[in-house]
């Protein structure tokens, strides 16, 4: 580009030819730089979008880890303890009604539907 500009200067000594050609070359230079800059800008945008996409995928709601409160954990333990004791107590009641001293699988089977409905 500069070679073209200086060549123009050397060849054309007359002012009336030199001035428009200078304008033309300057326009070319500006256009070239604009194009280069635009390309750079576009490339930067794309890269930014990629990084944004990555960050968005990382912090989405699905991948967010949920922790439990200490007291909530204790309460859950109590709930599970109640569940187990309830299952055993109902099975014991059925076994006593049938006159058995050992809880068998049939006793558990008979109480299972209502137990699962209640919890």
């Amino acid at each position: 580009m500069f070679l073209f500009f200086f060549g123009d200067l050397l060849i054309s000594n007359a002012n009336y030819i030199w001035f428009p050609s200078f304008l033309l070359t300057m326009c070319c230079v500006i256009l070239f730089y604009c194009c280069a800059h635009l390309q750079h800008l576009v490339a930067g945008r794309i890269f930014q979008f990629q990084s944004l996409y990555r960050v968005g995928a990382g912090s989405s709601k699905k991948n967010r880890t949920t922790s439990a409160n200490a007291s909530a954990l204790k309460l859950t333990c109590e709930l599970l303890r109640v569940f187990i004791t309830e299952a055993v107590q109902r099975a014991v009641a059925i076994a006593e009604a049938e006159g058995d001293t050992q809880i068998e699988a049939t006793h558990l089977e008979s109480i299972l539907p209502q137990l699962l409905l209640d919890f």
Binding site: L80, A105, L108
Partner: peptide, 15 residues
């Protein structure tokens, strides 16, 4: 009372 092992294992799995 007494309990068979199968029932205890079942209760644990259920829980």
């Amino acid at each position: 009372m007494e309990v068979s092992k199968v029932v205890v294992a079942c209760v644990a799995d259920l829980a």
